[in-house]
Nucleic acid binder design. Structure first.
Lengths: 272, 272
DNA sequence: TGTCAGTGTTCAATATATACGAACGCCCCA
DNA sequence: TGGGGCGTTCGTATATATTGAACACTGACA
């Protein structure tokens, strides 16, 4: 396998990066045969085969009839990571309540490497669509295009925001997406003043959202909460205000509980 | 790094298996520093460091302050695998209903490499404990110790059951766990006759469960459904019978819907 | 304030693992 | 019945991983 530029540092294990490429490709292709995968990655069939067999031996990949697929061990890792997050263990039921009270989708989001990861999503009774609609909300997304993302950006140090923009740019998803850096910084200042963020069809046409940050006692942003639904939901001022109040209230409840939990853990730690 | 026996096949990529070992270790140690991890795995610090940096570059691991941890990308893979499963996408809401109606825990399980994987769990109002209690139910478990596992074993070909027993044995979790092969096969025959399985404190002291298989039209077992709770729940015959009826009914609903969906997908496929 | 024991990180030399094409057997469809 | 697709195996050419020793840094403790 030729050494390519993204893997060029002689002090990284190319074999590990290749294996990860295969894992990601298996996800994007929804499972694949050896030949298909080899062509997709531009590698030889025999090499690809060796990787698949090794990943299978390691338990990350299974061969299901005619295709290699990611195994259920991936689910174990995923659940583990989720349960490691205080925001999730403490916030889950609150997010469910929020979805129930608003009838819409509620999302709990954390930042990692400059992008927003959906830690948990809950669907209210009146939320449009089911499996299909739910899939519209990516598991991971750019921070500038969602209400939850902007709520996080607003409380990150400016230099980190700059770095994130440098890395990913400000790609547009719809006509409304904020693609101008100055515009974004203005909005982040507004968010800090108001205490909540608003997504005005910047991610999906016809969809709006309200987000609020969840911060630790030292001011660091831990994540954010959001409610999203069809723009008609946010049209009437009274209803829109109700959602804003609910989102900020619930975000605050989670924030207080997380900080309480952290404080008590610290006390236990100090005593040992 | 010395070649050890489990990795001895010259045609498997040791680097890939080593990387997977590190991923698993990071989970079991709840994140780790370089030295701690190197000691745990019996490898040199520098080697371990190279792996961690490569995994970080690949996005599977993040360095969080002072420890290396699994990244949120793992959550992406996990959610992807879950959503690939028809049993989950179709069964989720049914499992929620079942948990609501019984007030207990409901689990949706699939088999992979001879073990049961929890595809989805739902917690009813009266279910004892919360985060802690929930954690009692592993993400993956041996098939002979749970109601859902036994429901699956009952409908696997006998030779596969034999292979699974040869591979993992019949380890005991409690006094009640079935550890005798003949005893197990008797019970599997009973399950086939009754159409449901019963876990009598074989996994956790004080906990019982009822399970039922979900099968495809050709008879293959796709997974299983179960409800579990404190033994007092299953003491009264009337209540126990109610749970049996509910579990078998809901398993059947999921079964019918999954098979309907599969049939219509096949038709679409044939038409192309 | 200085020392110590711990950490993560770098490097050059050594040891060993990975990559590939060509060939095989297999199955399905024409 | 043959051809084209697939997954799989193998020998060899070549690129890769492994290691201990050394360094910089941090925080604890005296």
């Amino acid at each position: 396998m030729p050494t390519d530029d993204t893997k060029s540092d002689p002090r990284t294990l190319t074999t590990v990066l290749n294996a990860i490429d295969i894992i990601r490709a298996l996800m994007h292709l929804n499972g694949a045969g050896v030949t298909e995968l080899a062509n997709h990655l531009g590698e030889s069939k025999s090499t690809t085969y060796t990787y698949l067999k090794s990943l299978e031996k390691g338990g990350l990949v299974r061969k299901d009839d005619d295709r290699y697929r990611l195994s259920y061990d991936m689910l174990i890792f995923g659940e583990y990571v989720r349960n490691q997050s205080l925001l999730y263990t403490i916030g889950k039921s609150e997010v469910d309540n929020l979805a129930a009270e608003t009838g819409q989708y509620a999302h709990l989001v954390v930042e990692e490497s400059g992008r927003g990861h959906n830690l948990y999503k809950s669907k209210g009774e009146q939320a449009v669509g089911d499996g299909y609609q739910m899939a519209k909300f990516q598991q991971r997304d750019y921070l500038h295009i969602t209400a939850s993302g902007k709520a996080i950006l607003a409380y990150l140090p400016r230099e980190r925001v700059e770095m994130i923009i440098d890395r990913y740019g400000l790609p547009a998803r719809t006509e409304q997406t904020i693609t101008c850096k100055d515009r974004l910084f203005e909005e982040l200042a507004d968010i800090r003043e108001q205490g909540f963020s608003h997504n005005n069809e910047e991610e999906i046409e016809g969809f709006q959202a309200i987000g609020a940050p969840i911060r630790s006692r030292d001011g660091t942003v831990l994540g954010s909460l959001s409610v999203s639904g069809p723009k008609s939901m946010f049209g009437e001022d009274s209803e829109c205000q109700r959602i804003i109040d609910l989102v900020t209230k619930v975000a605050n409840v989670i924030e207080v509980n997380v900080n309480m939990h952290r404080r008590s853990s610290e006390i236990v730690k100090d005593e040992t």
